[in-house]
Design a binder for these strands. Structure first.
Lengths: 146, 146
DNA sequence: TTTTCTGCAAATGCTTTGCATGGGA
DNA sequence: TCCCATGCAAAGCATTTGCAGAAAA
Protein backbone atom coordinates (compact mmCIF):
# COMPACT_ATOMS: atom_id res chain seq x y z
CA UNK A 1 0.00 0.00 0.00
CA UNK A 2 2.52 2.52 1.21
CA UNK A 3 5.45 2.12 -1.08
CA UNK A 4 8.07 3.89 0.93
CA UNK A 5 10.83 1.57 -0.27
CA UNK A 6 10.34 2.65 -3.85
CA UNK A 7 10.33 6.26 -2.76
CA UNK A 8 13.53 5.73 -0.79
CA UNK A 9 15.27 4.25 -3.80
CA UNK A 10 14.03 7.09 -5.93
CA UNK A 11 15.53 9.60 -3.51
CA UNK A 12 18.82 7.71 -3.37
CA UNK A 13 19.17 7.52 -7.12
CA UNK A 14 18.30 11.20 -7.55
CA UNK A 15 21.08 12.08 -5.14
CA UNK A 16 23.51 9.79 -6.97
CA UNK A 17 22.58 11.37 -10.29
CA UNK A 18 23.78 14.67 -8.95
CA UNK A 19 26.96 13.13 -7.51
CA UNK A 20 25.95 13.58 -3.92
CA UNK A 21 27.51 11.00 -1.64
CA UNK A 22 25.32 8.50 0.10
CA UNK A 23 26.46 8.60 3.70
CA UNK A 24 24.83 6.55 6.45
CA UNK A 25 23.36 9.73 7.95
CA UNK A 26 21.85 10.79 4.64
CA UNK A 27 20.43 7.38 4.02
CA UNK A 28 18.79 7.38 7.43
CA UNK A 29 17.31 10.85 6.86
CA UNK A 30 15.98 9.82 3.47
CA UNK A 31 14.38 6.76 4.99
CA UNK A 32 12.65 8.77 7.68
CA UNK A 33 11.33 11.19 5.06
CA UNK A 34 10.18 8.35 2.80
CA UNK A 35 8.40 6.57 5.63
CA UNK A 36 6.81 9.43 7.59
CA UNK A 37 3.34 10.54 6.70
CA UNK A 38 3.08 12.97 9.60
CA UNK A 39 5.08 15.74 7.90
CA UNK A 40 7.92 15.82 10.46
CA UNK A 41 9.90 18.85 11.54
CA UNK A 42 13.70 18.92 11.42
CA UNK A 43 13.70 18.38 15.18
CA UNK A 44 11.53 15.28 14.83
CA UNK A 45 13.75 13.84 12.10
CA UNK A 46 16.72 14.60 14.33
CA UNK A 47 15.23 12.76 17.30
CA UNK A 48 14.46 9.73 15.19
CA UNK A 49 17.82 9.57 13.53
CA UNK A 50 19.58 9.84 16.86
CA UNK A 51 18.13 6.50 17.86
CA UNK A 52 20.11 4.91 15.04
CA UNK A 53 23.09 7.29 14.82
CA UNK A 54 23.49 9.02 18.19
CA UNK A 55 26.25 11.34 17.00
CA UNK A 56 24.31 12.89 14.12
CA UNK A 57 24.04 16.66 14.31
CA UNK A 58 21.10 18.92 13.71
CA UNK A 59 23.13 20.81 11.11
CA UNK A 60 23.44 17.67 9.02
CA UNK A 61 19.69 17.17 9.08
CA UNK A 62 19.17 20.78 8.03
CA UNK A 63 21.73 20.49 5.24
CA UNK A 64 20.33 17.27 3.84
CA UNK A 65 16.78 18.59 3.85
CA UNK A 66 17.97 21.82 2.21
CA UNK A 67 19.53 19.77 -0.57
CA UNK A 68 16.35 17.77 -1.13
CA UNK A 69 14.28 20.93 -1.04
CA UNK A 70 16.45 22.49 -3.71
CA UNK A 71 16.04 19.35 -5.82
CA UNK A 72 12.27 19.58 -5.42
CA UNK A 73 12.14 16.23 -3.64
CA UNK A 74 10.77 17.53 -0.38
CA UNK A 75 7.91 19.94 0.21
CA UNK A 76 8.43 22.53 2.94
CA UNK A 77 5.54 23.92 4.94
CA UNK A 78 6.81 27.04 6.67
CA UNK A 79 4.93 28.80 9.47
CA UNK A 80 5.14 32.18 11.14
CA UNK A 81 5.13 30.84 14.67
CA UNK A 82 6.84 27.45 14.66
CA UNK A 83 9.33 25.23 12.87
CA UNK A 84 8.81 24.14 9.27
CA UNK A 85 7.38 20.72 8.52
CA UNK A 86 8.47 18.54 5.61
CA UNK A 87 6.79 16.13 3.23
CA UNK A 88 9.17 13.78 1.45
CA UNK A 89 6.51 11.39 0.20
CA UNK A 90 4.53 13.77 -1.96
CA UNK A 91 6.78 16.65 -2.97
CA UNK A 92 4.25 18.26 -5.30
CA UNK A 93 1.94 20.97 -3.87
CA UNK A 94 -1.26 19.62 -2.37
CA UNK A 95 -3.88 20.61 0.17
CA UNK A 96 -3.08 20.28 3.87
CA UNK A 97 -5.46 20.11 6.79
CA UNK A 98 -3.71 21.36 9.91
CA UNK A 99 -4.81 21.27 13.53
CA UNK A 100 -4.06 24.64 15.09
CA UNK A 101 -3.68 23.07 18.53
CA UNK A 102 -1.71 19.82 18.21
CA UNK A 103 -0.22 20.63 14.82
CA UNK A 104 -1.26 17.36 13.23
CA UNK A 105 -1.05 17.66 9.45
CA UNK A 106 -3.24 15.56 7.16
CA UNK A 107 -3.42 15.23 3.36
CA UNK A 108 -7.15 15.34 2.59
CA UNK A 109 -8.56 14.41 -0.78
CA UNK A 110 -9.53 17.58 -2.59
CA UNK A 111 -10.59 17.60 -6.20
CA UNK A 112 -11.19 20.15 -8.90
CA UNK A 113 -8.66 22.66 -7.70
CA UNK A 114 -5.79 21.68 -9.99
CA UNK A 115 -6.57 24.29 -12.60
CA UNK A 116 -7.06 27.20 -10.22
CA UNK A 117 -3.42 28.17 -9.56
CA UNK A 118 -2.48 28.25 -13.23
CA UNK A 119 -5.59 30.17 -14.13
CA UNK A 120 -5.14 32.80 -11.43
CA UNK A 121 -1.45 33.20 -12.22
CA UNK A 122 -2.03 33.65 -15.95
CA UNK A 123 -4.84 36.11 -15.31
CA UNK A 124 -2.29 38.41 -13.67
CA UNK A 125 0.54 37.71 -16.11
CA UNK A 126 2.51 35.60 -13.63
CA UNK A 127 4.42 32.47 -14.56
CA UNK A 128 3.19 29.82 -12.15
CA UNK A 129 5.82 28.30 -9.88
CA UNK A 130 3.85 26.53 -7.17
CA UNK A 131 1.07 27.03 -4.70
CA UNK A 132 -0.03 26.27 -1.19
CA UNK A 133 -3.46 25.53 0.17
CA UNK A 134 -3.70 25.08 3.93
CA UNK A 135 -6.91 24.58 5.86
CA UNK A 136 -6.63 25.28 9.57
CA UNK A 137 -8.96 23.86 12.17
CA UNK A 138 -9.35 21.89 15.37
CA UNK A 139 -9.00 18.15 14.95
CA UNK A 140 -11.56 15.81 16.54
CA UNK A 141 -9.28 14.90 19.41
CA UNK A 142 -8.47 18.51 20.30
CA UNK A 143 -12.17 19.44 20.10
CA UNK A 144 -13.07 16.86 22.69
CA UNK A 145 -10.30 18.00 25.00
CA UNK A 146 -11.56 21.58 25.07
CA UNK B 1 -12.84 54.06 -3.98
CA UNK B 2 -10.34 52.88 -1.45
CA UNK B 3 -11.98 53.63 1.85
CA UNK B 4 -8.97 53.49 4.12
CA UNK B 5 -10.35 56.22 6.35
CA UNK B 6 -13.34 54.12 7.29
CA UNK B 7 -11.06 51.18 7.93
CA UNK B 8 -8.83 53.34 10.10
CA UNK B 9 -11.76 54.47 12.21
CA UNK B 10 -12.93 50.91 12.50
CA UNK B 11 -9.54 49.86 13.83
CA UNK B 12 -9.45 52.76 16.27
CA UNK B 13 -12.85 52.04 17.69
CA UNK B 14 -12.12 48.33 18.02
CA UNK B 15 -9.06 49.18 20.06
CA UNK B 16 -11.06 51.61 22.22
CA UNK B 17 -13.73 48.97 22.80
CA UNK B 18 -11.09 46.81 24.39
CA UNK B 19 -9.69 49.71 26.43
CA UNK B 20 -6.46 49.93 24.53
CA UNK B 21 -5.01 53.40 24.56
CA UNK B 22 -4.72 55.34 21.34
CA UNK B 23 -1.17 56.62 21.31
CA UNK B 24 0.31 58.61 18.43
CA UNK B 25 2.49 55.62 17.53
CA UNK B 26 -0.45 53.26 17.45
CA UNK B 27 -2.50 55.65 15.39
CA UNK B 28 0.30 55.96 12.88
CA UNK B 29 0.73 52.18 12.66
CA UNK B 30 -3.01 51.72 12.18
CA UNK B 31 -3.01 54.28 9.42
CA UNK B 32 -0.17 52.58 7.58
CA UNK B 33 -1.98 49.25 7.83
CA UNK B 34 -5.28 50.75 6.69
CA UNK B 35 -3.68 52.48 3.71
CA UNK B 36 -1.18 49.90 2.45
CA UNK B 37 -2.28 47.45 -0.15
CA UNK B 38 1.17 45.95 -0.57
CA UNK B 39 1.02 43.73 2.52
CA UNK B 40 3.93 45.35 4.36
CA UNK B 41 6.38 43.62 6.67
CA UNK B 42 7.03 44.89 10.19
CA UNK B 43 10.28 46.37 8.92
CA UNK B 44 8.43 48.28 6.19
CA UNK B 45 5.88 49.63 8.65
CA UNK B 46 8.77 50.61 10.90
CA UNK B 47 10.56 52.52 8.13
CA UNK B 48 7.40 54.40 7.23
CA UNK B 49 6.50 55.31 10.77
CA UNK B 50 9.99 56.57 11.45
CA UNK B 51 9.46 59.33 8.90
CA UNK B 52 6.69 60.69 11.12
CA UNK B 53 7.91 59.56 14.58
CA UNK B 54 11.67 59.05 14.38
CA UNK B 55 11.95 57.63 17.89
CA UNK B 56 9.47 54.79 17.42
CA UNK B 57 10.93 51.39 18.15
CA UNK B 58 10.60 48.14 16.26
CA UNK B 59 9.25 46.49 19.42
CA UNK B 60 6.30 48.86 19.47
CA UNK B 61 5.46 47.97 15.89
CA UNK B 62 5.67 44.28 16.73
CA UNK B 63 3.53 44.70 19.83
CA UNK B 64 0.83 46.70 18.08
CA UNK B 65 0.60 44.25 15.21
CA UNK B 66 0.48 41.34 17.67
CA UNK B 67 -2.49 43.00 19.37
CA UNK B 68 -4.32 43.50 16.09
CA UNK B 69 -3.54 39.94 15.03
CA UNK B 70 -5.00 38.60 18.25
CA UNK B 71 -8.11 40.70 17.66
CA UNK B 72 -8.41 39.26 14.16
CA UNK B 73 -7.99 42.69 12.58
CA UNK B 74 -4.84 41.92 10.71
CA UNK B 75 -4.00 38.89 8.57
CA UNK B 76 -0.50 37.51 8.92
CA UNK B 77 1.26 35.78 6.05
CA UNK B 78 4.20 33.89 7.52
CA UNK B 79 6.99 32.39 5.44
CA UNK B 80 9.75 29.89 6.04
CA UNK B 81 12.49 32.03 4.59
CA UNK B 82 11.63 35.66 5.25
CA UNK B 83 9.73 38.04 7.48
CA UNK B 84 5.95 37.89 7.80
CA UNK B 85 3.76 40.24 5.79
CA UNK B 86 0.56 41.80 7.06
CA UNK B 87 -2.81 42.72 5.58
CA UNK B 88 -4.79 45.18 7.65
CA UNK B 89 -7.29 46.05 4.95
CA UNK B 90 -8.84 42.62 4.45
CA UNK B 91 -8.30 40.58 7.60
CA UNK B 92 -10.36 37.61 6.42
CA UNK B 93 -8.57 34.76 4.60
CA UNK B 94 -8.31 35.25 0.87
CA UNK B 95 -6.15 34.12 -2.03
CA UNK B 96 -2.74 35.69 -2.49
CA UNK B 97 -0.59 35.80 -5.59
CA UNK B 98 3.06 36.12 -4.60
CA UNK B 99 6.13 36.79 -6.72
CA UNK B 100 8.89 34.45 -5.59
CA UNK B 101 11.55 36.90 -6.71
CA UNK B 102 10.54 40.42 -5.68
CA UNK B 103 7.99 39.31 -3.08
CA UNK B 104 5.19 41.45 -4.44
CA UNK B 105 1.86 40.25 -3.03
CA UNK B 106 -1.41 40.74 -4.89
CA UNK B 107 -5.02 39.96 -4.01
CA UNK B 108 -6.43 38.35 -7.15
CA UNK B 109 -10.13 37.78 -7.69
CA UNK B 110 -10.87 34.11 -7.18
CA UNK B 111 -14.36 32.73 -7.07
CA UNK B 112 -16.03 29.51 -6.14
CA UNK B 113 -13.59 28.48 -3.48
CA UNK B 114 -15.47 29.78 -0.44
CA UNK B 115 -17.09 26.46 0.34
CA UNK B 116 -13.98 24.32 -0.03
CA UNK B 117 -12.31 24.91 3.35
CA UNK B 118 -15.47 24.18 5.33
CA UNK B 119 -16.24 21.13 3.27
CA UNK B 120 -12.75 19.63 3.58
CA UNK B 121 -12.61 20.37 7.31
CA UNK B 122 -15.97 18.76 8.02
CA UNK B 123 -15.09 15.74 5.92
CA UNK B 124 -12.28 14.99 8.36
CA UNK B 125 -14.19 15.98 11.49
CA UNK B 126 -12.28 19.21 11.98
CA UNK B 127 -13.85 22.46 13.19
CA UNK B 128 -12.79 25.05 10.61
CA UNK B 129 -10.73 27.94 11.93
CA UNK B 130 -9.25 29.56 8.85
CA UNK B 131 -7.37 28.81 5.69
CA UNK B 132 -4.64 30.03 3.43
CA UNK B 133 -4.34 29.86 -0.31
CA UNK B 134 -1.11 31.19 -1.79
CA UNK B 135 -0.17 31.03 -5.45
CA UNK B 136 3.55 31.50 -6.12
CA UNK B 137 4.95 32.65 -9.41
CA UNK B 138 7.13 35.13 -11.25
CA UNK B 139 5.50 38.50 -11.81
CA UNK B 140 5.62 40.13 -15.27
CA UNK B 141 8.40 42.52 -14.28
CA UNK B 142 10.62 39.78 -12.85
CA UNK B 143 10.03 37.60 -15.91
CA UNK B 144 11.33 40.30 -18.22
CA UNK B 145 14.39 40.87 -16.07
CA UNK B 146 15.46 37.23 -16.30
C1' DT C 1 43.93 10.45 -2.89
C1' DT C 2 40.69 13.74 -3.65
C1' DT C 3 36.83 15.99 -2.50
C1' DT C 4 32.75 16.17 -0.17
C1' DC C 5 30.36 15.56 4.24
C1' DT C 6 30.02 15.77 9.16
C1' DG C 7 29.70 17.81 13.67
C1' DC C 8 30.54 21.41 16.56
C1' DA C 9 30.07 26.08 17.74
C1' DA C 10 29.33 30.59 16.45
C1' DA C 11 26.54 33.63 13.76
C1' DT C 12 22.25 35.14 11.72
C1' DG C 13 17.51 36.93 11.11
C1' DC C 14 13.12 37.58 12.87
C1' DT C 15 10.48 38.12 16.81
C1' DT C 16 9.51 38.40 21.79
C1' DT C 17 10.39 39.81 26.47
C1' DG C 18 11.87 42.45 30.80
C1' DC C 19 12.08 46.52 32.76
C1' DA C 20 12.57 51.47 33.82
C1' DT C 21 10.62 55.67 32.12
C1' DG C 22 7.05 58.33 29.85
C1' DG C 23 2.49 59.57 28.70
C1' DG C 24 -2.78 58.57 27.85
C1' DA C 25 -7.26 58.67 30.17
C1' DT D 1 -3.24 59.79 39.65
C1' DC D 2 -3.09 55.24 37.90
C1' DC D 3 -1.82 52.06 34.64
C1' DC D 4 -0.71 51.01 30.33
C1' DA D 5 2.54 51.86 26.45
C1' DT D 6 7.04 52.93 24.89
C1' DG D 7 11.88 52.18 23.85
C1' DC D 8 15.91 50.07 24.70
C1' DA D 9 18.59 46.07 25.21
C1' DA D 10 18.79 41.38 26.05
C1' DA D 11 16.90 36.93 25.23
C1' DG D 12 14.73 33.33 22.31
C1' DC D 13 14.07 30.25 18.60
C1' DA D 14 14.71 28.27 14.13
C1' DT D 15 17.98 28.05 10.79
C1' DT D 16 22.50 28.84 8.46
C1' DT D 17 27.42 29.16 8.18
C1' DG D 18 32.61 28.43 8.90
C1' DC D 19 35.86 25.34 9.57
C1' DA D 20 38.81 21.33 10.95
C1' DG D 21 38.69 16.58 10.99
C1' DA D 22 36.37 12.26 9.09
C1' DA D 23 34.96 9.43 5.50
C1' DA D 24 32.88 8.47 0.68
C1' DA D 25 34.26 7.40 -3.98
Amino acid sequence: MDDWQARLEELVSKLRERDYRITPQRLAILKILAVSDNHPSVEQVYEQIRREFPTTSLATVYKTIATLKEMGEVLELGFADCASRYDGKRPKPHTHLICVKCRTILDPDVKNLESVPLHVAQQAGFRLVSHRFDIYGLCPRCQSEE
